[in-house]
Amino acid sequence: MTVRVEREDFDVGAEVARLTVGRSDIGAIVTFSGTVRGGSGADAITAMTLEHYPGMTEAELARVEAEAGKRWPLKASLIVHRIGTLKPGENIVLVVTASAHRQAAFAAAEFLMDYLKTRAPFWKKEMRADGQARWVAARECDREAAGRWEEISPPR
């Protein structure tokens, strides 16, 4: 169970290899990576800057990861979130979950992303093609996506 917040880019293959090296108890690995959308037309952006709350971010991600570990029989997990200024197409976030069977890994990866989006203290500011900077607004559908896990009991 690992959480990292950093400026540097990540290599999905290298992260998975590091997480699973020497492990024969893992049968399923799910990775999710999120990248910066460039948008188009009036919504086109040239860059996105991620601000966060140092200290709380790591604590909140660790709490979210621990909650996933309680709900599903995970063998390993990793969350990497980038901060600073990123260009369209660049990686922002990586979630890796590993379990004996695929169901737990799939569900836990989705859960981690849904919770991360509504709980981890990150804020995105977009630089638009017309030179205007704009804070990204939170989306109601992200709240709903996280909320549905309240009613879903862990498939142990």
Binding site: G34, H52, Y53, L116, K117, A120, P121, A138
Partner: peptide, 10 residues
């Protein structure tokens, strides 16, 4: 004590 807008990470 921290004050901030709704979070938008991920």
């Amino acid at each position: 004590i921290a004050f901030f807008p709704p979070v938008t990470g991920g």
